[in-house]
């Protein structure tokens, strides 16, 4: 019943597969190829960093994997679900139960307390109120914010807000954690705290992590594998020996 209990085997099952994935935006005459034929595979339990300069299409790829956006062509398969085949309703269910997301700007709802923010996905999942409260408490405990659960986001530091966002991403115990520059708004020390939490989720809870960043150092320190994008195309895909070693040690 606890979050830590579930840990799928790292047997190299394919968690995410994209095939010739494209997302084009038509702006009048011109067509912007934000994602332009990307094929990649992420194994279950892997920690992958998506790197590239601004505008290279990192967020676009992440949104397609998250089921927030639909590809112009090609397809995304996550744990044997072909996202293109899912209805809007099914996509919402998929986001609710399979995916946890964190963003650069935290994206907590300002009018709600931390506890309410964290339990919001459980409301969409129609979980009973009493169960919601204990789960939210547990998740906030995990990120060290139990004492702040009745505070509003504006009363918290950036790092604390991002930790709350991580607790929210965790609450439905998803298999996939998608993070779009989670440390982009934080100083390096706070960023490291957040990254430690992400690694903890990856290693202890067995979540597959795809993290967008443009800080190569951060990727090298935490990710097992680095994928490089440029102009919507995949330009590099390499394992990270340092992080892999750390993972084995821990």
């Amino acid at each position: 019943m606890t979050i830590a209990a579930r840990r799928p085997p790292r047997n190299g099952d394919i968690a995410i597969r994209t095939e010739d994935l494209r997302r084009h935006y038509r702006m009048g005459e011109t067509v912007i190829r934000a994602v332009d034929g990307i094929s990649l595979q992420v194994r279950a339990g892997e920690f992958v960093a998506l790197l590239g300069s601004s505008g290279s299409g990192k967020s676009s790829v992440l949104n397609l994997i998250a089921g927030l956006d639909r590809p112009t062509s090609g397809n995304v398969t996550v744990q044997d679900r072909d996202l293109a085949r899912l209805s809007r309703e099914e996509l919402a269910k998929y986001r609710l139960h399979v995916v946890g997301m964190v963003f650069q700007s935290f994206n907590l709802i300002a009018s709600m307390t931390l506890a309410e923010n964290v339990e919001l996905p459980l409301r969409f999942a129609e979980v009973d109120r009493s169960k919601r409260e204990s789960l939210a408490r547990e998740a906030l405990d995990r990120v060290g914010l139990q004492a702040r659960m009745n505070h509003r986001p504006s009363e918290l530091s950036g790092g604390e807000q991002q930790r709350a966002a991580l607790a929210r991403a965790l609450i439905n115990r998803p298999q996939l954690l998608l993070a779009d520059e989670p440390t982009g708004n934080l100083d390096s020390h706070t960023g490291t705290e957040i990254m430690d939490l992400v690694r903890e989720f990856n290693q202890q809870l067995g979540m597959t992590v795809v993290m967008v960043t443009h800080e190569r150092a951060l990727a090298e320190h935490y990710a097992e594998r680095m994928i490089f994008l440029a102009d919507g195309k995949l330009v590099g895909d390499q394992p990270n020996p340092i992080a892999s070693q750390q993972a084995v040690q821990s």
């Binding site: 998250a66 269910k93 986001r95 997301m101 994206n107 969409f124």
Partner: peptide, 10 residues
């Protein structure tokens, strides 16, 4: 947008 991203349906 946030609600949809964390799993709210239409």
């Amino acid at each position: 947008g946030i609600m949809k991203a964390i799993g709210a349906s239409d």
